[in-house]
Design a protein around this nucleic acid. Structure first.
Length: 413
DNA sequence: ATTCCACAGGAATGAACGGAAC
DNA sequence: GTTCCGTTCATTCCTGTGGAAT
């Protein structure tokens, strides 16, 4: 008698090999970068004050993977020297916007489950005091990795951490900061004093080219899939999508895994190029849905306005011309429309999410500079995502009614 | 070379809100 | 309960900008 669950016997040999957190024994295409990285970490083994290292490069070019890889080896190797006590903490700053947040998470990284602190509520100095206490009680050499460090809005913690020792907040620990960022301009925006201390060693990770992506995918696919599962051209297609989007290996791997999952769902023996294309659409759908759930009510209204305008008159369209439609919608559901400045913020947010895109236009003295917005994806996809995620009672329905009216209006005109 | 349009987007400020501490 | 906090979403005011018009 079978249970409710049965184990899949399928195309995968080890699906985890495609996951982001998988650590291959060899990192493809990053030899030069890792060599320099290794040199920058050398002081740790020598028992000296570690360098602060700043790492930048676009998403999915091996910054985090390379860091994990080297630090694991560093921890192993440091264990062979009695006089080195090494502690490494890795914190992803995604979703954390302030130094305060970073400080609370760091404190929690050092404390065990039963002793965690809340991430709000404490006075800022209290949190810093707790942090110094945790750091100092660790002793030895301390490496703190701040991944996606550009998400932090204020650099207070970046200023405090490297100087903690000098300020006598620490007496025991030798501390080194490794900052990872995919936003190059972040480096320039840092205040000079932070820049000089945080960026002692700078490493740049260039995007993977198509060939490197193919090698990476090949390597992972070899461990992930059983033999003869991949159609010819599948790897290349995944690599091509990743290369088009700025040499992003993570994206390529996600795509390949999604294609594999689809194959599993559909009980097919092989992964074809068509399957990859389906997978891509599926991933796109997820991205949109995720983006849309994070939006405000007004964000949704702005999006509805753009959608209806797109269907009627087509896009691109400038924010000035979006506004009447948007205010109309807002009044329809009985909320005060936002001021134009704020509406532009929402448009900006939508284009950050890749749901819409903006091109800057300039008509000089006659027209000035402005942006033209257009919808970047399949409208039905967006409407479906809105349908699933917009929970405010009545908005979607009343807007859809309006959309239908628009449709019939434009049909007759 | 200078002027100037119409917007982009930064900065300051505030209201509302939720958690922690008293 | 009240008082401190930080966060989020919003408004208001403002400076910056690139190229057509002068």
């Amino acid at each position: 008698m079978g249970g409710m669950f049965e184990r899949d016997t399928d195309i995968y040999h080890n699906r985890d090999a495609l996951r982001e957190d998988y650590q291959p024994s060899r990192l493809v295409g990053r030899d030069k970068e890792l060599e320099r990285y290794k040199t920058a970490l050398q002081p740790v083994i020598n028992g000296e004050q570690p360098n602060n290292i700043f790492l930048y490069g676009k998403t999915g070019v091996g910054k985090t993977a390379g860091t994990r890889f080297l630090l694991d080896h560093l921890i192993d190797d440091a264990a062979q020297y009695d006089d080195i006590e090494l502690t490494v903490k890795l914190l992803n700053c995604d979703g954390l916007s302030s130094s305060y947040q970073i400080a609370t998470r760091l404190v929690n990284k050092f404390r065990d489950e039963s002793n965690q602190i809340s991430t709000t509520g404490y006075p800022r100095p209290t949190v810093y005091d707790m942090l110094w206490e945790e750091l100092d009680s660790c002793g030895g050499t301390l490496l703190i990795v701040l991944d996606e460090v550009d998400h932090i809005q204020d650099d207070s913690i970046l200023y405090q951490l490297p100087r903690a020792r000098a300020n006598e907040n620490l007496s025991q620990a030798k501390i080194g900061i490794i900052g990872i960022s995919n936003d190059f301009s972040f480096r320039d925006d840092l205040s000079p004093k932070v820049k000089s201390s945080l960026c002692e060693e700078e490493l740049q990770f260039p995007a993977y080219d198509a060939q490197e992506l193919i090698e990476i995918l090949q390597q992972r696919a070899d461990s992930a899939f059983r033999d003869n599962v991949l159609d010819t051209g599948v790897i290349e297609l995944c690599a091509a999508y990743g290369a088009k989007d700025a040499g992003d290996a993570r994206q390529s791997l996600d795509l390949l895994m999604k294609a594999g999952d689809l194959a599993r769902d559909r009980d097919t023996e092989t992964i074809t190029e068509d399957l990859v294309r389906d997978a891509r659409e599926e991933l796109e759908r997820g991205r949109i849905r995720e983006g849309i759930t994070g939006l405000t009510q007004h964000g949704h209204l702005v999006l509805y306005a753009l959608i209806t305008l797109e269907m009627q008159n087509g896009t691109p369209i400038r924010s000035r011309d979006i506004r009447p439609r948007y205010t109309n919608f807002a009044e329809q559901i009985g909320v005060d429309p936002l001021v134009p400045r704020r509406m532009r913020d929402h448009l900006g947010e939508l284009s950050m999410l890749g749901i819409i895109s903006a091109v800057e236009r300039n008509e000089g003295r006659r027209g000035g500079t402005y942006r033209e917005y257009s919808i970047d994806m399949d409208i039905n996809m967006i409407v479906n995502a809105l349908d699933e995620t917009v929970t405010e009672v009545g908005i979607h329905e009343s807007i859809v009614d309006l959309v239908d009216e628009d449709r019939t209006l434009s049909d007759y005109s």
